[in-house]
Design a protein around this nucleic acid. Structure first.
Lengths: 332, 332
DNA sequence: CTGTTAGCGCATTCAA
DNA sequence: TTGAATGCGCTAACAG
């Protein structure tokens, strides 16, 4: 648990000044070849590496890209995979940060995290499903699946409405008529769009919309438990559920199974996202795929563009219905 | 792209000194209730949040836990999930860092990353599959699946040998006799242990060990391609392959399929890790599960213990063989 | 109770 | 070519 070796240690060991070491490391002019090689040797010996913290206080850029998330859930992790892959080979490091939103916190996690890291530590940030995209930030940002709508200049969104329609159409085409919707967080645009897609599909099929069939899930497993029960407690139990995301779909299946129902024999379930858990669940979840790694890659590309000064167009990625095992025709 | 609001901005807006703002924010004594509430109002208005960087330079602790990885691959991501879950509800933030190992870098990524973040930015670090566990660090560390052996004081390891034996035993029990091993990185202890488990299983079953059947894979998909081909090019082609991890197992399946073989009809494949991709692959991969999220949780618990001053015992997690679809009896 | 001062580790002037 | 001084945003010790 020793102290880090600082630039001062290197300077002392090399018998030169701190400034010389700094210049040598950063390849600035004004260091004699002899001194340079000597300093570099000492640097190697001591295993010195400049402190990100100190560097970032003085320098403009740190070559670190921040990925800011509310928490490390599967959606963000899949995205991170794409981000990491896209940055492979560049000289950027990736710093993923999950800021805890301690109770009583007024600003959203994204503002808090940006405020803490921005300006200095990171050159730019990728915000994953932020609830706000206010532009008054200190570093360039790209928002992925922002919950207020993917219409900002630097945003990566997905076709929520179309995806939700496809999911619901799929259930209808299997013969389901009584289809519940385990809704996402109602304050988020993605949830609203998915609900709209659900309703549009019903309308298009001539199925009257029943408000009782829409139950709040909130996108998180723990928040979906009550909703899942509520759906199964409905009089004239629905034969199918379109859940607003995979986590709540999986929770829906868990509760259904717990209550003795079989999926898909007694209840069909469709999710949204296609996180890896969807395919590894038993039964495998039918869902609407968002191309998460590709979205991460696109976000990186967009951020690097912004960093270069350009002003990119918003990107809207397509969704694909992935039919697996959790959906089937209703029993007669 | 404005400047961040700094503590100076707040001080100026509130008409007090910087020190007073600092004290108010950090709840130190010596601020009158009036001043306090006034300052806090300004803080709210301006949306001020202290810079992690600056704070960490002056303070002992930042309440940030670092998770240091070489890259964000599935193994690390699953682990991160456990880490994140374990830190939920505490007032710790999680900072996951992937340091790019630019070519010509001599120190390992873990030393580089620790050097960059350590000392100030993070209170402690969880190193994911580090190749070294040298103790000369500036912050407490816990190593997960360290590649030099899980015998350090603060390490979380898995039963590599037993897992590898189970995997190989499974193939043998299916009737395979000619079983290849797509080995991991030979400089890493985990790879050596897995190879040992493979050999022990063969020996126990009375199958002579054939060195030609062991081919290097290197744990990464890209590094396994050549090895996968090599195995299939072997005279008297093996009927089964035990790959040192899931990524190389999946690559093995990909190459086999590409060459017209069917898995498991023509070739059985077993992996190691049970990353989520294993179960979502078609055919689903038979593999040896490491309880990754639990390992992440255990790492957090251990790190918090270390932070509290205790000196924990190393933990060795059990592995479980998960039989799925990629293994079957050999054809006659 | 409040403001002033020093310094964390580093990169950047500017002077020697 | 080198080195001493300066300041980044912040907190802790001290002075007022």
């Amino acid at each position: 648990m020793n102290r880090r070796t600082t630039i001062t240690d290197v300077a002392r060991a090399a018998g030169v000044s701190v400034a010389t070491v700094s210049k040598a490391i950063n390849g600035r002019y004004g260091v004699s070849p002899d001194t340079l090689s000597h300093v570099m040797t000492v640097v190697e010996d001591l295993g010195y590496e400049s402190s990100l913290v100190a560097t970032s206080m003085r320098r403009r850029s740190t070559n670190v890209i921040g990925v800011l998330v509310a928490e490390f859930e599967p959606f963000a992790l899949q995205l991170l995979r794409g981000v990491s892959a896209a940055l492979e080979g560049t000289d950027y490091d990736v710093l993923a940060y999950a800021g805890s939103v301690s109770a009583g916190e007024h600003l959203g996690w994204e503002r808090r995290s940006l405020s803490r890291l921005g300006g200095t530590l990171i050159d730019g940030a990728i915000l994953v499903t932020p609830t706000t995209t206010r532009a008054e930030t200190s570093v360039p940002i790209v928002a992925v699946d922002p919950h207020v709508g993917a219409d900002g200049p630097a945003t990566i969104g997905v076709a929520n409405l179309e995806g939700a329609r496809a999911a619901t159409d799929h259930l209808i085409s299997l013969g389901h008529r009584r289809i519940a919707h385990l809704r996402g967080r109602t304050d988020l645009e993605s949830a609203q769009e998915r609900e709209r897609g659900y309703r549009e599909a019903l309308t298009a099929a001539g199925i009257p919309f029943d408000p009782a069939l829409v139950v709040d899930g909130g996108y998180r497993a723990a928040d979906s438990t009550a909703g899942a029960h509520a759906i199964l407690d409905l009089p004239d139990t629905p034969t199918a559920v379109f859940a607003a995301n995979d986590l709540s779909a999986i929770e829906m299946m868990r509760i259904a199974t717990e209550r003795g129902l079989r999926v898909p024999a007694d209840l069909s379930v469709v999710g949204f996202d296609d996180i890896l858990d969807a395919a590894s669940h038993a039964p495998q979840l039918t869902t609407v795929r968002q191309p998460l790694p590709e979205m991460g890659t696109a976000a990186v590309r967009m951020l690097l563009d912004v960093l270069k000064g350009s002003d990119p167009e918003p990107v809207r990625m397509p969704t694909t219905l992935i039919v697996r095992e959790s959906t089937a025709a209703p029993r007669q």
